[in-house]
Design a protein around this nucleic acid. Structure first.
Length: 700
DNA sequence: CAGCCTCGAGTTCC
DNA sequence: CTCGAGGCTG
């Protein structure tokens, strides 16, 4: 092989990334394949050779990273060392008082003892920057909070992101917001328009589009900026308070927001909210609210996190932008559980910088003003075709109909009649007692339900089959000769294809490589975890979490099935194991048992499982001495509140109960403990005091 | 039995 | 992202 200079290698890698990426997209997006399989492999091989020789030149969108990655989805995935969470929201001033109260109560402090920072909430996209020994080594987008996209090469193009830090900790993840100023956004759109390229709807989309460029050179040409406001993993404490930590980030060379202010309590926080709100129109960038954080980092640590949000911070959002428009039509969509959801078709209107023509109307009661008995419905708006309706984008994303202007109604408008039969299959659609949604009773007879269920089956958190997305599912469902009507059909697809004449590879938009790729992707998912399988089935009430809970309890699929078979009919002894799972109640248990007892559903599941190798679920990990244990706190706790002790214990995987029973593993008794301590002693349950507890969990 | 928290399900636009 | 409902706690 001819030796390459670094310069040449870099250029060739860029070229390879582009060619391979284009070829990849061509296969997946139904264009004709651009290059032969042999050439594709050759190019990939060449890429690998150069990367091996110049590892430092490996690109963010390296084709070698894209094995099995979603098509056109050029960035490698990165798991965050510390999750990037979202924030709880507040809209009213009163909710800020409640937030401060909640925090104080959790900590067992007086609200007056707390201070908070207030800072504008920048409307951009969050980014996590990892520095090792002061060098920027990785940049990742938020993604779903657990896993983001590796955009390191792109982040290096942003001037306000330092490539290296002086006097930095060994390890430091800096988090903040990438955004584009109004002026730069306008200028970029002018350039885009002149070049005949697409323009961006708003600065946030422009910033997101500019950062997520496979060719980092494009990012370089885009005027992106970065505000640092938080941190993830770090090898040493940054400071003692939030505001000092922000100052430290500034000292390290990051740009921090000048409107960040320390506040003594809710009253001052709301004042700062008004100050920032008043400045909003003159700020050079978009903001959508104000973020408050408990200032003392030690308290932040004690407060910890709920499922998806920290307890020590909240976002005070500005009121959503509203717009009035005409309701042209109401369409009914049928979901995978048969839910009939009304969708408003609107005369297009701009809301918050985006043109909206569809919006959710929530449910039947929301549209109607009176029920069949003529009784007024609480929360019902009596929305009719042709009405003027008010639209907003909830969380600045999902368009919703908020209100109706009755004064503008034409006299001829009749009340909307919500369909009583499924518009897709004609089956009766009924509302269960106390339920807000009307559901199609057609089950899998209903094509809409069947298709939606299949889409769920192949979705990312379920089987996650590359090249078999929503569009493909619809195509295969309608296909006469090579159809997918139920999950099992996916796994017999390749065998059926090889036996017939009109093979997939000969169809328009498909080639030998794309067909083989699909079959390979399917093949690679025959081995599947118990939890994923259970979730993928799309049974009502059985989401990701419940599937994990149930699979973690039964461990093996076979054992689970035996339990379901044993628990037929009405609730009995045979249900107890299921009902004893923490988080499974009657509704969830019934949903499981009936689904597996229902003959056609069961046969369909059995046909599927026959095609698979179901892996046992992992037993709940126990890397702390209290994981999986049941604890009881009693007596007075002097160094923390009950809520705090409980949250801490649960974060370590323990279950906290209110009363002592044979199931209790450990009692933590403070002064004044009475009957519970006695009962624990009688039962021979281990008992420790508050200091013992603190020692036990210290450093975990 | 009420109130809280979490989970499930549905939704739009790029 | 939000609403509604399920499950658990007090």
């Amino acid at each position: 092989m001819i030796e390459l200079s670094e310069q040449e290698a870099k250029a060739e890698l860029a070229q390879l990334a582009e060619r391979l990426g284009a070829a990849n997209r061509a296969y997946h997006q139904e264009d004709a394949p651009e290059i032969s399989d042999a050439l594709f492999d050759q190019l990939k091989q060449r890429n690998a050779v150069i990367e091996a020789q110049f590892p430092q030149l490996k690109r963010a969108d390296s084709p070698s990273e894209q094995v099995g990655a979603a098509p056109a989805d050029g960035f490698a995935k990165v798991r965050h060392a510390q999750a990037m969470l979202s924030l709880g929201n507040a809209f009213e001033d009163s909710e800020i008082d409640e937030f401060a109260e909640r925090v104080a109560k959790f900590l067992g402090l007086k609200a007056s003892a707390l201070t908070f920072t207030a800072e504008p909430k920048i409307d951009g996209l969050s980014l996590s920057l990892r520095y090792e020994k002061g060098q920027l080594v990785q940049a990742a987008t938020r993604g779903d909070g657990q896993t983001g996209e590796n955009v390191t090469a792109n982040a290096r193009m942003i001037a306000s992101i330092p490539q290296q830090l002086e006097n930095a900790p060994e390890l430091l993840e800096v988090r903040g917001e990438v955004y584009m100023s109004h002026a730069d956004f306008a200028a970029l759109n002018t350039v885009q328009a002149e070049a005949g390229a697409k323009t961006f709807a708003n600065p946030r989309n422009a910033a997101a589009g500019s950062l997520r460029q496979l060719d980092a050179e494009v990012t370089r040409s885009r005027p992106l900026e970065f505000f640092a406001y938080a941190w993830g993993a770090h090898s040493e404490p940054l400071a003692e308070t939030q505001h000092q930590a922000i100052a430290r980030l500034a000292a390290l060379g990051f740009v921090t927001n000048p409107l960040t202010k320390l506040c003594a309590g809710p009253a001052e926080m709301v004042v700062q909210y008004r100050v920032i709100e008043a400045k909003r129109a003159t700020l050079p960038y978009d903001i959508d609210g104000v973020v408050y954080k408990v200032d003392a980092l030690a308290l932040q640590e004690r407060l910890g996190f709920r499922a998806t949000t920290p307890r020590w911070a909240i976002a005070h959002k500005f009121p959503a932008e509203l717009a009035w428009t005409r309701l042209e039509a109401i369409d009914i969509q049928v979901g995978r559980t048969g839910a009939l959801s009304p969708v408003a078709r609107l005369s297009p209107v701009t809301v918050g910088g985006v043109v909206v023509s569809n919006a959710t109307l929530h449910n039947e009661d929301y549209i109607l003003g009176r029920d069949s008995q003529g009784e007024e419905i609480r929360g019902g708006k009596d929305i009719r075709l042709g009405d003027w309706v008010q639209v907003y984008r909830a969380g600045d994303v999902i368009p919703k109909v908020a209100d109706v202007d009755l004064s503008k109604r034409e006299g001829t408008a009749r009340p909307y009649v919500f369909p009583q039969v499924c518009p897709e299959c004609g089956s009766l659609a009924i509302r269960e007692e106390g339920d807000a949604v009307r559901r199609c009773t057609g089950g899998l007879i209903c094509p809409a339900q069947a298709v939606e269920k299949l889409k769920h089956f192949v979705s990312r958190k379920a089987f996650d089959i590359d090249g078999l997305g929503a569009k493909q599912i619809e195509m295969f469902y309608a296909d006469e000769t090579l159809s997918i009507r139920e999950p099992a059909d996916i796994f017999t697809l390749a065998a059926r294809d090889s036996k017939q004449l009109g093979k997939l590879k000969n169809r328009e938009g498909w080639g030998a490589r794309s067909a083989d790729k699909l079959f390979e992707a399917i093949e690679s998912k025959r081995e599947i975890g118990f939890a994923r399988l259970l979730f993928a089935l799309g049974l009502r009430h059985i989401g990701e979490q419940v599937a994990k809970l149930v699979s973690g309890h039964y461990v093996s699929w076979d054992r689970f099935i035996s339990a379901m078979d044993a628990a037929q009919g009405e609730i009995s002894e045979d249900w107890i194991e299921l009902l004893n799972i923490d988080g499974v109640g009657e509704v969830v248990a019934r949903a499981l048992v009936t689904a597996f007892a229902q003959q056609s559903e069961r046969e369909s599941i059995d046909r599927l499982v026959a095609e698979l190798q179901v892996q046992d679920a992992e037993q709940v990990a126990s890397d702390s001495p209290v994981a999986g244990k049941t604890l009881v706190f009693t007596g007075t706790l002097e160094k923390m509140t009950r809520a705090e002790a409980k949250a801490r214990a649960e974060a370590l995987g323990a279950k906290v109960s209110g009363s002592v029973s044979a199931k209790t593993d450990l009692l933590i008794a403070g002064p004044g403990a009475g009957s519970k301590a006695k009962k624990a002693a009688d039962l021979g349950i281990e008992t420790i005091d508050e200091d013992g507890w603190i020692n036990l969990v210290a450093g975990l």
